[in-house]
Nucleic acid binder design. Structure first.
Length: 468
RNA sequence: GGGCCCGUAGAGAAGCCCGGAGUUCUCGUCUCCCUGUCACGGAGAAAAUCGUGGGUUCAAAUCCCAUCGGGCCCGCCA
Protein backbone atom coordinates (compact mmCIF):
# COMPACT_ATOMS: atom_id res chain seq x y z
CA UNK A 1 0.00 0.00 0.00
CA UNK A 2 1.28 3.45 -0.92
CA UNK A 3 1.88 5.92 1.88
CA UNK A 4 -0.52 8.87 2.20
CA UNK A 5 0.42 12.23 3.73
CA UNK A 6 -1.80 13.05 6.68
CA UNK A 7 -2.90 16.29 5.05
CA UNK A 8 -4.43 14.17 2.25
CA UNK A 9 -6.28 11.89 4.66
CA UNK A 10 -9.36 14.11 4.60
CA UNK A 11 -9.97 13.05 0.98
CA UNK A 12 -9.96 9.37 1.94
CA UNK A 13 -12.87 9.16 4.35
CA UNK A 14 -14.19 5.60 4.37
CA UNK A 15 -10.97 4.20 2.90
CA UNK A 16 -8.12 2.29 4.45
CA UNK A 17 -4.79 4.08 3.98
CA UNK A 18 -1.23 3.92 5.23
CA UNK A 19 0.35 6.86 7.05
CA UNK A 20 3.93 7.24 8.26
CA UNK A 21 5.45 9.66 10.72
CA UNK A 22 6.47 10.53 14.22
CA UNK A 23 4.34 10.09 17.35
CA UNK A 24 3.71 13.66 18.46
CA UNK A 25 1.57 12.82 21.47
CA UNK A 26 0.48 9.55 22.99
CA UNK A 27 -2.64 9.49 25.14
CA UNK A 28 -3.55 6.17 26.70
CA UNK A 29 -6.94 5.83 28.38
CA UNK A 30 -6.36 2.28 29.41
CA UNK A 31 -8.40 0.42 26.82
CA UNK A 32 -8.42 3.10 24.14
CA UNK A 33 -5.27 4.89 22.95
CA UNK A 34 -5.03 8.11 20.97
CA UNK A 35 -1.91 8.87 18.99
CA UNK A 36 -1.25 12.15 17.18
CA UNK A 37 0.87 11.22 14.19
CA UNK A 38 3.03 13.99 12.71
CA UNK A 39 4.49 14.05 9.22
CA UNK A 40 5.74 16.90 7.04
CA UNK A 41 2.19 17.80 6.04
CA UNK A 42 0.55 17.97 9.47
CA UNK A 43 -0.92 15.96 12.32
CA UNK A 44 -3.55 13.20 12.31
CA UNK A 45 -5.26 11.56 15.27
CA UNK A 46 -5.09 7.79 15.23
CA UNK A 47 -7.47 5.81 17.46
CA UNK A 48 -6.29 2.44 18.72
CA UNK A 49 -9.19 0.33 19.95
CA UNK A 50 -9.01 -2.76 22.17
CA UNK A 51 -10.56 -4.99 19.51
CA UNK A 52 -7.26 -5.13 17.60
CA UNK A 53 -5.25 -8.38 17.52
CA UNK A 54 -3.17 -8.77 20.66
CA UNK A 55 0.18 -8.50 18.83
CA UNK A 56 -0.84 -5.09 17.39
CA UNK A 57 -2.09 -3.94 20.78
CA UNK A 58 1.21 -5.01 22.30
CA UNK A 59 3.08 -2.74 19.87
CA UNK A 60 0.65 0.12 20.54
CA UNK A 61 1.11 -0.15 24.30
CA UNK A 62 4.88 0.06 24.04
CA UNK A 63 5.11 2.99 21.62
CA UNK A 64 6.46 6.29 22.89
CA UNK A 65 6.58 9.84 21.63
CA UNK A 66 8.90 10.57 18.68
CA UNK A 67 9.01 6.93 17.62
CA UNK A 68 8.67 6.58 13.85
CA UNK A 69 5.76 4.35 12.91
CA UNK A 70 3.73 3.19 9.97
CA UNK A 71 0.02 2.81 10.62
CA UNK A 72 -2.60 1.29 8.36
CA UNK A 73 -6.17 2.15 9.20
CA UNK A 74 -9.50 3.43 8.10
CA UNK A 75 -10.22 7.16 7.88
CA UNK A 76 -13.51 8.10 9.52
CA UNK A 77 -15.44 11.24 10.26
CA UNK A 78 -15.06 11.88 13.98
CA UNK A 79 -18.06 11.11 16.20
CA UNK A 80 -20.22 14.11 17.08
CA UNK A 81 -18.69 16.38 19.68
CA UNK A 82 -15.16 15.03 19.35
CA UNK A 83 -14.02 17.29 16.51
CA UNK A 84 -10.94 19.40 17.24
CA UNK A 85 -11.01 22.92 15.82
CA UNK A 86 -7.29 23.41 16.47
CA UNK A 87 -6.30 20.70 14.02
CA UNK A 88 -6.70 21.02 10.25
CA UNK A 89 -7.51 17.29 10.27
CA UNK A 90 -9.76 17.80 13.31
CA UNK A 91 -12.91 16.50 11.62
CA UNK A 92 -11.43 13.11 10.85
CA UNK A 93 -9.41 10.42 12.53
CA UNK A 94 -7.83 7.11 11.65
CA UNK A 95 -8.94 3.89 13.27
CA UNK A 96 -5.80 1.78 13.37
CA UNK A 97 -5.79 -1.69 11.83
CA UNK A 98 -2.09 -2.44 11.83
CA UNK A 99 0.99 -0.74 13.27
CA UNK A 100 4.70 -1.23 12.57
CA UNK A 101 7.50 0.48 14.38
CA UNK A 102 10.06 1.83 11.87
CA UNK A 103 12.34 3.36 14.48
CA UNK A 104 12.37 3.75 18.22
CA UNK A 105 13.47 7.02 19.79
CA UNK A 106 15.24 7.97 22.96
CA UNK A 107 13.55 10.60 25.09
CA UNK A 108 14.22 13.81 23.19
CA UNK A 109 16.35 16.42 24.98
CA UNK A 110 13.73 19.20 25.01
CA UNK A 111 10.11 19.91 24.21
CA UNK A 112 9.53 20.46 20.50
CA UNK A 113 5.85 21.34 20.73
CA UNK A 114 6.75 24.95 21.48
CA UNK A 115 8.38 27.73 19.47
CA UNK A 116 11.63 26.85 21.25
CA UNK A 117 12.78 30.33 22.25
CA UNK A 118 12.85 29.21 25.90
CA UNK A 119 15.45 26.48 25.27
CA UNK A 120 19.19 27.21 25.39
CA UNK A 121 20.57 27.63 21.90
CA UNK A 122 23.46 25.41 22.90
CA UNK A 123 20.99 22.53 23.31
CA UNK A 124 19.04 23.45 20.23
CA UNK A 125 22.13 23.61 18.02
CA UNK A 126 23.65 20.42 19.37
CA UNK A 127 20.42 18.56 18.60
CA UNK A 128 19.43 20.66 15.61
CA UNK A 129 17.80 17.69 13.85
CA UNK A 130 15.40 17.47 16.78
CA UNK A 131 15.00 21.23 17.05
CA UNK A 132 14.02 21.40 13.39
CA UNK A 133 11.01 19.17 14.11
CA UNK A 134 9.37 22.28 15.54
CA UNK A 135 6.50 23.65 13.53
CA UNK A 136 8.04 27.13 13.57
CA UNK A 137 11.39 26.11 12.13
CA UNK A 138 9.85 23.90 9.46
CA UNK A 139 7.61 26.79 8.49
CA UNK A 140 10.64 29.11 8.29
CA UNK A 141 12.52 26.75 5.97
CA UNK A 142 9.51 26.24 3.72
CA UNK A 143 8.97 30.00 3.64
CA UNK A 144 12.58 30.44 2.53
CA UNK A 145 11.93 28.15 -0.41
CA UNK A 146 8.76 30.02 -1.38
CA UNK A 147 10.59 33.32 -1.14
CA UNK A 148 13.50 32.15 -3.30
CA UNK A 149 11.19 30.43 -5.75
CA UNK A 150 9.28 33.65 -6.30
CA UNK A 151 12.49 35.64 -6.74
CA UNK A 152 13.84 33.13 -9.26
CA UNK A 153 10.62 33.15 -11.29
CA UNK A 154 10.40 36.94 -11.26
CA UNK A 155 13.96 37.38 -12.46
CA UNK A 156 13.80 34.62 -15.07
CA UNK A 157 10.64 36.23 -16.49
CA UNK A 158 12.65 39.43 -16.93
CA UNK A 159 15.47 37.76 -18.80
CA UNK A 160 17.89 37.13 -15.96
CA UNK A 161 20.09 34.05 -16.25
CA UNK A 162 20.90 32.10 -13.11
CA UNK A 163 24.57 31.18 -13.22
CA UNK A 164 26.68 29.53 -10.56
CA UNK A 165 30.20 30.78 -9.88
CA UNK A 166 33.13 29.01 -8.19
CA UNK A 167 33.41 28.41 -4.47
CA UNK A 168 37.15 27.82 -4.76
CA UNK A 169 38.38 31.21 -5.76
CA UNK A 170 41.04 33.83 -5.22
CA UNK A 171 41.81 35.50 -1.92
CA UNK A 172 40.99 39.21 -1.77
CA UNK A 173 42.58 40.34 1.46
CA UNK A 174 41.27 43.92 1.23
CA UNK A 175 37.74 43.02 2.30
CA UNK A 176 36.60 40.76 5.07
CA UNK A 177 38.97 38.06 6.23
CA UNK A 178 38.92 35.10 3.84
CA UNK A 179 38.41 31.46 4.63
CA UNK A 180 41.44 29.81 3.04
CA UNK A 181 41.63 26.38 1.45
CA UNK A 182 45.12 24.97 0.97
CA UNK A 183 45.89 23.51 -2.43
CA UNK A 184 47.25 19.97 -2.62
CA UNK A 185 48.37 20.12 -6.26
CA UNK A 186 49.91 23.57 -5.94
CA UNK A 187 52.05 23.41 -2.80
CA UNK A 188 51.92 26.45 -0.50
CA UNK A 189 49.15 28.07 -2.53
CA UNK A 190 45.61 28.68 -1.44
CA UNK A 191 42.10 29.04 -2.69
CA UNK A 192 39.72 31.29 -0.80
CA UNK A 193 35.99 30.79 -0.30
CA UNK A 194 34.13 33.71 -1.87
CA UNK A 195 33.04 36.66 0.27
CA UNK A 196 30.69 37.38 -2.62
CA UNK A 197 30.63 36.51 -6.34
CA UNK A 198 31.46 40.16 -7.10
CA UNK A 199 34.28 39.71 -9.57
CA UNK A 200 32.75 36.73 -11.36
CA UNK A 201 29.47 38.50 -11.90
CA UNK A 202 31.23 41.52 -13.39
CA UNK A 203 33.19 39.22 -15.67
CA UNK A 204 29.86 37.69 -16.75
CA UNK A 205 28.87 41.19 -17.84
CA UNK A 206 32.09 41.43 -19.86
CA UNK A 207 31.09 38.07 -21.32
CA UNK A 208 27.85 39.57 -22.57
CA UNK A 209 25.38 37.59 -20.44
CA UNK A 210 23.80 41.02 -19.69
CA UNK A 211 21.50 39.94 -16.85
CA UNK A 212 22.76 37.53 -14.20
CA UNK A 213 21.59 36.42 -10.80
CA UNK A 214 22.50 33.75 -8.32
CA UNK A 215 21.40 32.53 -4.93
CA UNK A 216 24.96 32.29 -3.66
CA UNK A 217 26.61 30.99 -0.52
CA UNK A 218 29.16 33.51 0.74
CA UNK A 219 31.82 33.19 3.42
CA UNK A 220 33.45 35.75 5.69
CA UNK A 221 35.80 34.86 8.51
CA UNK A 222 34.67 37.63 10.86
CA UNK A 223 32.99 37.50 14.26
CA UNK A 224 29.31 36.50 13.96
CA UNK A 225 26.33 38.44 15.31
CA UNK A 226 22.59 37.89 15.50
CA UNK A 227 22.44 39.10 11.89
CA UNK A 228 25.78 37.67 10.69
CA UNK A 229 27.09 34.15 10.15
CA UNK A 230 30.43 33.08 8.72
CA UNK A 231 28.47 31.36 5.97
CA UNK A 232 25.35 33.02 4.59
CA UNK A 233 23.15 33.32 1.52
CA UNK A 234 23.10 36.23 -0.89
CA UNK A 235 20.75 36.97 -3.74
CA UNK A 236 23.37 38.34 -6.08
CA UNK A 237 22.42 40.19 -9.24
CA UNK A 238 24.13 42.16 -11.98
CA UNK A 239 22.88 43.80 -15.18
CA UNK A 240 24.38 45.64 -18.12
CA UNK A 241 23.54 49.01 -19.72
CA UNK A 242 21.91 50.39 -16.61
CA UNK A 243 22.19 53.32 -14.26
CA UNK A 244 21.53 53.55 -10.53
CA UNK A 245 17.84 54.14 -10.88
CA UNK A 246 17.32 51.19 -13.24
CA UNK A 247 18.68 48.73 -10.68
CA UNK A 248 16.85 50.35 -7.79
CA UNK A 249 13.54 50.37 -9.68
CA UNK A 250 13.84 46.70 -10.56
CA UNK A 251 14.76 45.69 -7.01
CA UNK A 252 12.02 47.83 -5.55
CA UNK A 253 9.44 46.17 -7.78
CA UNK A 254 10.84 42.74 -6.91
CA UNK A 255 10.68 43.42 -3.17
CA UNK A 256 7.14 44.79 -3.35
CA UNK A 257 5.92 41.87 -5.45
CA UNK A 258 7.69 39.30 -3.28
CA UNK A 259 6.15 40.69 -0.10
CA UNK A 260 2.71 40.81 -1.74
CA UNK A 261 2.91 37.17 -2.83
CA UNK A 262 4.83 35.36 -0.08
CA UNK A 263 4.07 37.56 2.94
CA UNK A 264 0.60 39.01 2.24
CA UNK A 265 0.02 39.92 5.90
CA UNK A 266 2.83 42.47 5.76
CA UNK A 267 2.19 46.12 4.97
CA UNK A 268 4.79 48.27 3.29
CA UNK A 269 4.79 51.69 4.94
CA UNK A 270 5.77 53.79 1.95
CA UNK A 271 5.83 53.15 -1.81
CA UNK A 272 7.89 54.21 -3.66
CA UNK A 273 10.60 53.56 -1.07
CA UNK A 274 12.06 56.76 0.39
CA UNK A 275 15.48 57.62 -1.03
CA UNK A 276 17.74 59.21 1.56
CA UNK A 277 21.28 60.44 1.05
CA UNK A 278 23.97 59.20 3.38
CA UNK A 279 24.52 62.73 4.67
CA UNK A 280 20.84 63.23 5.38
CA UNK A 281 20.59 59.86 7.14
CA UNK A 282 23.53 60.63 9.39
CA UNK A 283 22.25 64.12 10.23
CA UNK A 284 18.67 63.06 10.84
CA UNK A 285 19.05 59.56 12.31
CA UNK A 286 22.74 59.30 13.22
CA UNK A 287 22.96 55.99 11.36
CA UNK A 288 23.13 54.87 7.75
CA UNK A 289 20.43 52.23 8.25
CA UNK A 290 17.55 54.07 9.90
CA UNK A 291 14.46 52.28 11.16
CA UNK A 292 11.71 54.40 9.61
CA UNK A 293 8.75 52.47 11.00
CA UNK A 294 6.13 54.87 12.36
CA UNK A 295 4.82 52.17 14.72
CA UNK A 296 7.57 49.84 15.88
CA UNK A 297 5.12 47.67 17.80
CA UNK A 298 3.38 46.73 14.55
CA UNK A 299 4.83 43.31 13.71
CA UNK A 300 3.55 43.46 10.15
CA UNK A 301 4.94 46.86 9.18
CA UNK A 302 7.78 47.02 6.67
CA UNK A 303 9.65 50.29 6.19
CA UNK A 304 12.04 50.05 3.27
CA UNK A 305 14.34 52.85 2.24
CA UNK A 306 17.26 53.44 -0.04
CA UNK A 307 20.42 55.10 1.21
CA UNK A 308 22.42 56.74 -1.60
CA UNK A 309 25.31 59.13 -2.25
CA UNK A 310 27.79 57.50 0.10
CA UNK A 311 31.28 58.99 0.22
CA UNK A 312 33.58 56.78 -1.85
CA UNK A 313 36.54 57.01 0.52
CA UNK A 314 37.21 57.44 4.20
CA UNK A 315 40.36 57.55 6.31
CA UNK A 316 41.20 54.38 8.20
CA UNK A 317 42.78 54.19 11.66
CA UNK A 318 46.25 54.75 10.21
CA UNK A 319 45.02 57.82 8.36
CA UNK A 320 45.18 56.12 4.95
CA UNK A 321 42.37 56.34 2.43
CA UNK A 322 40.17 53.29 2.18
CA UNK A 323 36.89 52.68 0.34
CA UNK A 324 33.66 52.73 2.34
CA UNK A 325 31.94 49.94 0.41
CA UNK A 326 33.35 48.44 -2.74
CA UNK A 327 36.40 49.32 -4.80
CA UNK A 328 34.62 48.21 -7.96
CA UNK A 329 31.93 50.86 -7.54
CA UNK A 330 31.92 53.76 -9.97
CA UNK A 331 31.95 57.30 -8.68
CA UNK A 332 28.91 59.38 -9.46
CA UNK A 333 29.52 60.81 -12.96
CA UNK A 334 30.22 64.35 -11.75
CA UNK A 335 33.16 63.09 -9.66
CA UNK A 336 34.95 61.05 -12.33
CA UNK A 337 37.26 63.93 -13.14
CA UNK A 338 38.26 64.46 -9.49
CA UNK A 339 38.81 60.73 -9.07
CA UNK A 340 41.09 60.47 -12.09
CA UNK A 341 43.01 63.55 -10.91
CA UNK A 342 42.89 62.24 -7.28
CA UNK A 343 41.73 65.54 -5.87
CA UNK A 344 38.95 66.44 -3.41
CA UNK A 345 39.03 62.77 -2.47
CA UNK A 346 36.89 63.25 0.64
CA UNK A 347 34.14 64.82 -1.46
CA UNK A 348 33.87 62.07 -4.06
CA UNK A 349 30.52 60.25 -3.90
CA UNK A 350 29.91 56.74 -5.13
CA UNK A 351 26.97 55.25 -6.99
CA UNK A 352 26.58 52.86 -4.05
CA UNK A 353 23.00 52.28 -2.88
CA UNK A 354 21.99 50.33 0.21
CA UNK A 355 18.52 48.94 0.74
CA UNK A 356 17.42 49.16 4.37
CA UNK A 357 14.42 47.46 6.00
CA UNK A 358 13.26 48.23 9.54
CA UNK A 359 16.75 49.32 10.54
CA UNK A 360 18.59 46.35 9.03
CA UNK A 361 20.84 46.68 5.99
CA UNK A 362 19.37 43.99 3.78
CA UNK A 363 21.35 44.69 0.63
CA UNK A 364 23.72 46.91 -1.23
CA UNK A 365 25.01 47.51 -4.69
CA UNK A 366 26.32 50.03 -7.13
CA UNK A 367 27.09 50.89 -10.70
CA UNK A 368 30.59 49.55 -11.35
CA UNK A 369 33.65 51.07 -12.91
CA UNK A 370 33.87 49.52 -16.34
CA UNK A 371 37.03 51.16 -17.58
CA UNK A 372 40.49 50.11 -16.36
CA UNK A 373 41.50 53.76 -15.77
CA UNK A 374 38.91 54.50 -13.11
CA UNK A 375 39.49 51.21 -11.30
CA UNK A 376 43.21 51.83 -11.34
CA UNK A 377 42.74 55.34 -9.95
CA UNK A 378 40.67 53.93 -7.07
CA UNK A 379 43.41 51.47 -6.15
CA UNK A 380 46.04 54.18 -6.38
CA UNK A 381 44.08 56.43 -4.02
CA UNK A 382 43.96 53.67 -1.43
CA UNK A 383 47.70 53.32 -1.73
CA UNK A 384 48.15 50.14 -3.76
CA UNK A 385 51.35 49.87 -5.72
CA UNK A 386 51.19 48.96 -9.42
CA UNK A 387 52.44 45.42 -8.87
CA UNK A 388 49.88 44.72 -6.14
CA UNK A 389 47.08 46.05 -8.34
CA UNK A 390 48.32 43.78 -11.09
CA UNK A 391 48.62 40.65 -8.94
CA UNK A 392 45.30 41.14 -7.15
CA UNK A 393 43.15 42.70 -9.85
CA UNK A 394 45.11 42.40 -13.09
CA UNK A 395 42.55 39.95 -14.44
CA UNK A 396 39.78 42.53 -13.95
CA UNK A 397 41.79 45.31 -15.62
CA UNK A 398 42.64 43.05 -18.50
CA UNK A 399 39.04 41.92 -18.92
CA UNK A 400 37.78 45.47 -18.93
CA UNK A 401 40.04 46.10 -21.91
CA UNK A 402 38.07 43.70 -24.10
CA UNK A 403 34.79 45.56 -24.49
CA UNK A 404 32.89 46.02 -21.24
CA UNK A 405 29.33 47.29 -21.00
CA UNK A 406 28.43 49.76 -18.28
CA UNK A 407 26.92 47.60 -15.57
CA UNK A 408 25.71 47.51 -12.02
CA UNK A 409 23.92 45.30 -9.58
CA UNK A 410 23.07 44.47 -6.02
CA UNK A 411 23.33 41.71 -3.45
CA UNK A 412 20.76 40.92 -0.76
CA UNK A 413 21.35 39.30 2.57
CA UNK A 414 18.64 36.71 2.09
CA UNK A 415 18.75 35.46 5.68
CA UNK A 416 18.23 38.97 7.02
CA UNK A 417 15.21 39.65 4.82
CA UNK A 418 13.69 36.32 5.80
CA UNK A 419 14.28 37.05 9.50
CA UNK A 420 12.36 40.28 9.24
CA UNK A 421 9.51 38.81 7.20
CA UNK A 422 9.22 35.97 9.73
CA UNK A 423 9.57 38.27 12.78
CA UNK A 424 12.71 36.48 13.94
CA UNK A 425 15.42 38.27 15.92
CA UNK A 426 18.29 36.16 14.62
CA UNK A 427 19.19 34.80 11.21
CA UNK A 428 19.96 31.49 12.92
CA UNK A 429 16.19 30.93 13.03
CA UNK A 430 15.98 30.86 9.24
CA UNK A 431 19.13 28.78 8.60
CA UNK A 432 18.83 25.00 8.84
CA UNK A 433 22.23 24.40 10.44
CA UNK A 434 23.64 27.64 11.83
CA UNK A 435 26.84 28.06 13.79
CA UNK A 436 27.47 29.54 17.23
CA UNK A 437 28.84 32.94 18.20
CA UNK A 438 32.37 31.67 17.67
CA UNK A 439 31.46 29.92 14.42
CA UNK A 440 31.38 26.38 15.73
CA UNK A 441 28.93 23.70 14.70
CA UNK A 442 27.98 22.03 17.98
CA UNK A 443 26.18 19.19 16.23
CA UNK A 444 29.03 18.15 13.91
CA UNK A 445 31.73 19.42 16.28
CA UNK A 446 33.27 21.63 13.62
CA UNK A 447 35.88 22.93 13.13
CA UNK A 448 37.82 19.86 14.21
CA UNK A 449 41.33 18.47 14.09
CA UNK A 450 42.33 16.52 10.99
CA UNK A 451 44.55 13.57 10.32
CA UNK A 452 48.26 14.35 10.11
CA UNK A 453 48.30 12.53 6.78
CA UNK A 454 45.79 15.00 5.38
CA UNK A 455 48.01 17.84 6.53
CA UNK A 456 51.06 16.27 4.91
CA UNK A 457 49.25 15.98 1.60
CA UNK A 458 48.45 19.68 1.87
CA UNK A 459 52.13 20.43 2.54
CA UNK A 460 51.29 21.76 5.99
CA UNK A 461 54.24 20.64 8.04
CA UNK A 462 53.81 22.48 11.28
CA UNK A 463 50.76 23.00 13.39
CA UNK A 464 50.62 25.95 15.72
CA UNK A 465 50.77 24.81 19.37
CA UNK A 466 47.53 25.06 21.30
CA UNK A 467 47.14 28.22 23.30
CA UNK A 468 47.64 27.57 27.01
C1' G B 1 41.02 41.97 21.18
C1' G B 2 37.20 44.37 24.67
C1' G B 3 32.32 45.11 27.54
C1' C B 4 27.73 43.09 29.51
C1' C B 5 24.28 38.94 30.67
C1' C B 6 23.53 33.71 31.59
C1' G B 7 24.96 28.42 33.48
C1' U B 8 20.52 24.74 39.51
C1' A B 9 17.34 16.83 38.00
C1' G B 10 16.15 15.23 30.77
C1' A B 11 14.01 20.66 29.45
C1' G B 12 12.48 25.52 31.47
C1' A B 13 12.48 28.48 35.84
C1' A B 14 12.57 30.19 41.33
C1' G B 15 16.20 30.13 45.24
C1' C B 16 21.72 33.77 45.12
C1' C B 17 21.51 40.40 46.50
C1' C B 18 20.91 39.29 52.68
C1' G B 19 25.63 32.07 53.53
C1' G B 20 22.59 27.70 57.60
C1' A B 21 20.19 20.04 55.48
C1' G B 22 19.50 19.92 47.42
C1' U B 23 14.10 23.23 49.04
C1' U B 24 10.12 24.56 45.32
C1' C B 25 7.21 25.11 40.62
C1' U B 26 5.98 23.83 35.24
C1' C B 27 6.98 20.26 31.37
C1' G B 28 9.13 15.57 30.38
C1' U B 29 10.57 10.29 32.07
C1' C B 30 9.11 5.57 34.71
C1' U B 31 5.15 2.38 37.31
C1' C B 32 -0.02 1.58 38.28
C1' C B 33 -5.40 3.01 37.20
C1' C B 34 -8.59 4.85 33.30
C1' U B 35 -13.07 3.40 26.30
C1' G B 36 -13.46 9.76 23.43
C1' U B 37 -9.05 12.28 24.61
C1' C B 38 -6.50 15.95 21.83
C1' A B 39 -0.93 20.05 26.07
C1' C B 40 -6.28 13.80 28.42
C1' G B 41 -7.04 12.83 33.57
C1' G B 42 -5.85 10.35 38.52
C1' A B 43 -2.23 8.02 42.07
C1' G B 44 2.79 7.21 43.01
C1' A B 45 8.16 7.15 41.92
C1' A B 46 12.91 8.09 40.04
C1' A B 47 16.04 11.77 38.52
C1' A B 48 21.11 17.17 40.75
C1' U B 49 29.27 16.44 41.51
C1' C B 50 23.95 23.74 41.77
C1' G B 51 29.24 24.26 34.55
C1' U B 52 34.50 23.22 36.44
C1' G B 53 38.70 24.30 39.78
C1' G B 54 40.47 27.01 43.83
C1' G B 55 39.71 30.45 48.03
C1' U B 56 37.02 32.81 52.42
C1' U B 57 33.96 30.62 56.43
C1' C B 58 32.12 26.48 61.84
C1' A B 59 29.05 26.32 57.27
C1' A B 60 28.96 28.08 50.05
C1' A B 61 24.05 26.98 44.80
C1' U B 62 24.55 31.78 47.58
C1' C B 63 30.55 35.72 48.88
C1' C B 64 35.70 36.16 46.21
C1' C B 65 39.26 34.56 42.25
C1' A B 66 40.25 31.72 37.99
C1' U B 67 38.54 28.80 34.09
C1' C B 68 35.07 26.43 30.55
C1' G B 69 30.49 26.77 27.80
C1' G B 70 26.25 29.76 25.65
C1' G B 71 24.05 34.59 24.23
C1' C B 72 24.07 40.03 23.14
C1' C B 73 27.04 44.17 21.83
C1' C B 74 31.75 47.11 20.46
C1' G B 75 35.97 46.42 17.41
C1' C B 76 35.82 43.84 12.77
C1' C B 77 32.25 42.88 8.74
C1' A B 78 35.51 45.81 0.58
Amino acid sequence: MKRTLVAEAGKKVGESIKVCGWIKTYRSHGKIIFVDLRDISGVLQVVILPELPSEVLEIAKNMRTEWVVEIVGKINKRPGGTQNQNLTTGDIEMTAENISVLSEAKTIPFDINTDGYEVNEEMRLKYRYVDLRRERLKRNLIFKQEFLHFVRTFLKDRGFIEIDTPSLTKSTPEGARDFLVPSRLQPEKFYALPQSPQQYKQLLMVAGLEKYFQIAKCFRDEDPRADRQAEFTQMDLEMSFVQEKDVRDLIEELLIETVRVVAPDKKIQEIPFPVITYQEAMEKYGIDRPDLRKDKSDKDLLAFCWIVDFPFFEKDKEGEWTFTHNPFSAPKPEFIDDLLKKKNIEKILTTQYDIVLNGWEIGGGSIRSHTPEILEAVFEIIGYKKDRIKSSFGHMMEAFGYGTPPHGGIAWGVDRILSILLNENSIREVIAFPKTGDSRDLMMDTPSAVDSKQLEELHIKTVAPKKK
